[in-house]
């Protein structure tokens, strides 16, 4: 299968008190179309840093990221933005909805950025799929945490991304709501055939993916492959 994400000897260091603080060291892995992968590890292990680098939100100190065949290191910030718009979806722990936009408008934003003038219909459809068909004109402040994250899910899928990065998507939700969101996430992911990179502290949640990448002190401590068929994930999640 074609590789969606190729991470090669990725290192990230920040200057700190006159010295370089390495938060990620020599991380290498690849993901193919439809793969699901959880990145786990204790706080400060470099999970979010890895996610940011893989999604082209930040530049590595050394190493290389190829996203959908595009070498991100060769691109400037605007070009990386275009790559994200074309191939990437995001779900954040704290939802990151734009407070001045309605639920529908929030979902439409990535499609509009692509220049799609017909974004409304698919956005309404997606919001219907996540159970918010009656909340189209509500603003984020008028929605509960779970509802906000469902809007964020719809937004993540509006451009039919090839890869979805989810950063602790249930971190700000109670268990019951979190469970519903995860189920929805896997359903949407499976139906769209999207590759999923999920950063989480939750080992139960991690085990629902096909692969677990454990980070410790910025290095890959283990790379555990649980299964290779994304469809199995769907079945398990739905069970």
């Amino acid at each position: 299968m074609p590789e969606v994400l190729e991470v090669d000897r990725l290192t990230k260091a920040y200057p700190s008190a006159g010295q370089a603080l390495t938060v990620l060291r020599d991380v290498t892995f690849t993901l193919e179309d439809g793969d699901t992968c959880a990145v786990v590890g204790p706080s400060g292990s470099g999970k979010t840093t890895l996610l940011g680098l893989c999604a082209g939100l930040d530049s590595p100190s050394s190493g290389r990221v190829r996203l959908c065949g595009v070498d991100l290191g060769a691109l400037d910030e605007d070009a990386r933005a275009q790559v994200r718009n074309r191939y990437v979806g995001f779900v954040f722990q704290s939802f990151r909805l734009i407070p001045t936009l309605t639920a529908l408008e929030n979902v439409m934003v990535p499609a509009e950025l692509r220049g799609n003038r017909e974004a409304r219909a698919p956005a309404v459809d997606l919001l219907g799929q996540v159970g918010l068909g009656d909340r189209l004109t509500h603003y984020p402040a008028q929605l509960s945490g779970g509802e906000k994250q469902r809007v964020a899910l719809a937004r993540a899928f509006i451009n039919r991304p090839r890869i979805l990065f989810a950063d602790e998507p249930t971190g700000n939700l109670d268990t019951e709501t979190g469970e519903k969101i995860i189920r929805l996430l896997f359903e949407l992911n499976a139906s769209a055939g999207t590759t999923l990179v999920l950063v989480t502290h939750d080992h139960e949640l991690a085990r629902r993916t096909g692969r677990i990448l454990r980070l410790r002190g910025g290095e890959v401590a283990s790379d555990e492959r649980l299964r290779s068929e994304p469809a199995a994930v769907e079945k398990e999640a739905g069970a």
Partner: peptide, 15 residues
């Protein structure tokens, strides 16, 4: 700033 960052995440160019 957060709104801008989100827009940039989803592919908005700087200008």
């Amino acid at each position: 700033v957060e709104t801008v960052a989100v827009l940039r995440c989803f592919g908005a160019r700087a200008w």
